[in-house]
Design a protein around this nucleic acid. Sequence first.
DNA 1: TTGAAAGCGCTAACAC
DNA 2: GTGTTAGCGCTTTCAA
Lengths: 340, 340
Amino acid sequence: MATIKDIAKRAGVSVTTVSRALNGYSDVNEQTRKKIMAVAKELNYSPNTLARGLVMNKSNTLGLLVSGMSKESVKDNFTYLVLAGINQYAGETDYDIVLFSTNSTKQREKTYSQLCRERRVDGAIIQGIRTDDPYLHEVIESDIPCVLIDISVESDTVGYVTTDNIMGAKKAVQHLVELGHRDIAMINGHDFAFVSQKRLEGYKLGLKIAGIPFRSDWVVKGFFEEAEAEKAAWNLLENHPEITAIFCASDLMAFGAMSAAKKRGLRVPEDLSIVGYDDILLASYSNPPLTTIAQDVSRLGYHASKLLVEMLEGRAESHNVILDTALVNRSSTAKRRPLK
Amino acid sequence: MATIKDIAKRAGVSVTTVSRALNGYSDVNEQTRKKIMAVAKELNYSPNTLARGLVMNKSNTLGLLVSGMSKESVKDNFTYLVLAGINQYAGETDYDIVLFSTNSTKQREKTYSQLCRERRVDGAIIQGIRTDDPYLHEVIESDIPCVLIDISVESDTVGYVTTDNIMGAKKAVQHLVELGHRDIAMINGHDFAFVSQKRLEGYKLGLKIAGIPFRSDWVVKGFFEEAEAEKAAWNLLENHPEITAIFCASDLMAFGAMSAAKKRGLRVPEDLSIVGYDDILLASYSNPPLTTIAQDVSRLGYHASKLLVEMLEGRAESHNVILDTALVNRSSTAKRRPLK
DNA sequence: TTGAAAGCGCTAACAC
DNA sequence: GTGTTAGCGCTTTCAA
């Protein structure tokens, strides 16, 4: 593979000149530049980014730490959409994406920051990692610039992008309240997801605004899984038959709740209203189609990489971006039945 | 960031010794190795893969060229599943994945092989690229080891992994024939997809075995898109009302065909049987649930990276792998109505 | 406008 | 077992 040395030799100049010509410096004679360009093309030259990265101490790569990039997550497509957004932005820049496979068992040997440091990525985007992951804090506390998705931590080198989860959850509750519901339960994810904490806050806020007392035993965990949520919903409905609506912190969990309702002989939405969160593709295919809080996940990815690059280039005005959500009103919610 | 030089100084040895100790060479004293390891840990040392790659002429990265990694492809999830499979295998090895964003407009400036050469990837995986893409051939003809997904080209440096598309399509036709159908049309993708060519072959083969003459005007293009397929199916049904079954080269196109049928007042499967291809998530959610030819897309990705790594390490016994497909019998196909 | 030379962090002969 | 040295391909002072 041709190097600048080869070009220099062939063009009869020094490597310095070649380097400068190729990088578009102005202090190169137009004649020599032309010549050098021609030779470079002739030799089918490609710059060696490894060598450049070594000397410049900059690799022009963004590390991507994702967890849960598995076959199973096709249902919610979250990881994929984030990636698509990142990829879209990266395509507009000179950065390439290095994917670190953190979901395998053997990766436990290497910490996230280890991975980033070895590859000398300029920055990292972190997604899908639980807040109790010890390696998460290690990378946050390292000096590697990074942007977190859906984890609101901020510092000199750390930024984040997320959606407004409090308002999102509030919207869901508000929608139910407007339909006349007052006995509204919640199926949340788990304690180690920031979004769960925020959505719980939003749920509480929604209740408060409506003057409905909060009951902690009406909030159960579904761990973002359909089957878990189904169990949780079953118990909820068994123990508290007065419940007429459930707000679920993810669409998948809403599907679980729907199944539980059906198995208990409750009709959705006539007997039980259900609101989901995410607006995944399947939300419009369920029976009944799911009313949910929509978030634009690929924008999340897009803005994550955009923010990171801006941070790297020292032109980030703020270290966080909060995206909006929207209520999508389908058919899993209805007016509360008149009380008997 | 600490370098082996720092370690050498601190440990009172030469950089060579450090290098050897760190890389597990045997010709280093246990005492010194211990010492070096300790110092390395103390200094929180991370090897610089850029420097190593430069001297070893090996980056331990696999380039990934995908097209169509956009928001739109959540419906079929093909790209994502390939990626998940690749990622899974990569997690079992020392290779990391570099994602090249080829779907953006500005990328046209750089060819695929350009991208690979600059990053000095050890090999590349290519997916979702049309066979008439000029850059595809450039990279195939370069000396970069690569594995193609669903494009059967093979050489010293090129391998491929795909499913048995001929047999897959044949199975679909055979299934319809067994249900009594003889007037079977096909909605194919487009001419620049290898899978389309193969599936057409399989369709022909299936007909031949059943002794049914092939009619070229019963094969139309849907370009792998739902809307296009709907139009195509409409015309097909309009011009040839005797058709009782359609084999579609993708599930998405099958959905399009279903819509067309419904709009024309035909019931699926009573009046028209439809078979898809892929077995995407939505296939089981459609109405009626879609009978289709299933392929395990993440295995495609897994085997692509596995094959590539084997080729790189000179232990690939063959340069291709062909995966199996399976008929998934749902409810979009039924026995042909008795003729009036 | 150009070139010589140093050096980025690492590996690998080759000598001792 | 260990150290000396050269060199991977590039950028960047500094001097001419």
